[in-house]
Each structure stands twice: as C-alpha cells, then as structure tokens.
Amino acid sequence: MSLKIALTKGRVEHQVLPLLEAAGINCSLLKEKNRKLIINTANGEFQFILAKGPDVTTYLNAGAVDIGIVGSDILTEQRNQQAELLDLKVGQCQFVLASTNNFNFNQPGRKVIGTKYPLITQRYFEKLGRDVEIIKIEGSVELAPLIGLADAIVDITETGSTLRENNLYVYDYLDLVSTRLVANRMSLKQHATEIFSLVDRLMSVVQDLNQSGNQGSRIK
C-alpha cells in the first residue's frame, strides 16, 4: 500500500523535497514530473498528489489522502480538523500588520483591513479589543492601502521586500508561519505504523537542521 501525500505545489514543494530526500525517500520521479500531478515513488512506498494549499486540507478532510504537507497559515484559516504531527521548519514567514507611513492605528474610527486571511485577521483584532471591517482580497493584498481600499493589511511576508518595494511599513507582528505535516485522523488509525515511520524519519532531518542553526527568525 502506498501512503497518499497531498503536497502543496510550488514553493512548499521545492522546500520540502530536500527534506524528503534527506529522509531516504527517492524523489527522482517527483523532480522529473513535468506536468504530472500524481507521482509514485519508484518503490511504491508513497504517492504524491500535487495540489494548491487550500485544496490539501480539502483532500485531507474528505479522506482522499492520508497525509498533507501545507502551510500553517492555511491550516489555521481553514480551521484544521486533522492531526498535525510535525513542524517541518521550512516555508517560514510571518503574519504582519502593514500599511503606508501615514497610518495611525490609534486614530479614532473603525479601520478597514484588507487580507487573504479574514479568520486570522478577525482573531487578531478581537484579542486587541478592536472592531474592524475586513475585506477579503485574493490577489496582491499590498495594493489595498495604496489605492485607498483599506487602511491597512494583514498578510504574510518572508523577507519584507515586497512591502518595502511598495513603500509599506510593518506596524505589528502576528503569528509565525511554517510548513506542517498533517495526517487524516482515520488514516492515522489504519496506517499508524507507516505514518509514524515517515514522521520519525522527517523529524530526525528537521532536528539535524535545527542543530546546524539553519533557522530564520522574525521578519525585519
């Protein structure tokens, strides 16, 4: 039996591949996939399904895959219902509150906040005791305060370069984000040995990277 793994394609995929290889998984077919979306490892141990991040949780919840590899931002925003087993410590970035240089957070009045993450944004402002209007944006969130659509934005950033290039400034730091390994709860009962074997292999790799000091910190 092959464990079915939904892997977020793109940046997460490329960052996770070295971890999988270091864990002894032959990823040659995954690297040479071309436009294929379903790739089996040569020994048949795993089947990788490449998907967009939000779809990974959909596949997990539907029981279509055993494991998902996806960012914690998506897990939080979509109220993850499955078993989060391992922080892979890659894809690290941070949620920030950002706006133009004339933004005054303490100025009276209800602020309008643009974001791709309305749930995370709502929770943040609720903790602050602030009532805000949230506008869901799917594209370039950075545009919102520049064109007057919103007073500020809540978004994730890795280096802060996009914010700086658009003359936006960070006013507060929210939660850190990283890539997580999540298992479907039913699969975890049925294939516990295989799933925890993979977790142990990847955990060893992640710990080695931590010990070598290969970790980032808060975005500046």
Rank of each mutant, 00 (worst) to 15 (best):
M1A: 13
S2T: 15
I5L: 02
L7T: 04
L7P: 01
T8G: 04
E13H: 07
H14R: 14
P18W: 12
L19K: 00
L20K: 02
L20D: 00
L20T: 01
E21H: 02
E21L: 02
A22T: 05
A23T: 05
A23Y: 08
A23F: 09
G24S: 10
L29R: 15
L30V: 11
E32N: 14
N40L: 12
T41L: 07
A42L: 14
A42F: 10
A42D: 14
E45N: 11
Q47I: 11
F48M: 01
L50K: 06
L50I: 08
A51R: 06
P54V: 11
D55K: 15
V56D: 01
T57F: 09
T58G: 13
Y59R: 06
N61F: 07
A62L: 14
G63V: 12
G63L: 03
A64S: 13
I67V: 10
G68C: 07
I69K: 00
V70M: 03
V70I: 14
G71P: 04
D73A: 13
I74Y: 10
I74D: 00
L75M: 12
T76A: 15
T76D: 15
N80K: 06
Q81W: 08
Q81R: 15
L85S: 02
L85F: 13
L88S: 04
V96K: 01
A98S: 09
S99P: 06
T100W: 01
N102M: 03
N102F: 12
F105R: 07
F105P: 01
F105T: 07
N106L: 11
Q107A: 14
Q107L: 11
G109R: 05
R110Q: 14
V112E: 04
I113M: 04
Y117K: 00
Y117D: 05
P118R: 05
P118L: 05
T121L: 04
T121H: 02
Y124M: 05
E126W: 11
R130C: 09
D131K: 11
V132M: 08
E133A: 13
E133W: 06
K136M: 08
K136I: 12
G139I: 10
E142Y: 15
L149V: 11
D151P: 04
D151G: 06
A152W: 03
I156K: 00
I156S: 05
E158D: 11
T159S: 14
G160E: 07
L168G: 00
L168P: 01
Y169W: 10
V170W: 03
Y171R: 08
Y173Q: 01
Y173C: 05
Y173W: 13
L174I: 05
L176G: 13
L176S: 11
R180A: 07
V182D: 01
V182M: 07
A183Q: 02
S187H: 04
L188Q: 06
L188W: 03
K189G: 09
H191I: 05
A192R: 15
T193F: 11
E194W: 03
E194G: 04
D200F: 08
R201M: 02
L202W: 08
S204E: 15
V205K: 03
V206G: 00
Q207T: 12
D208I: 09
D208P: 01
D208T: 09
N210I: 14
S212F: 10
S212Y: 10
S212Q: 15
Q215A: 10
S217M: 13
I219M: 06
K220L: 12
K220P: 14
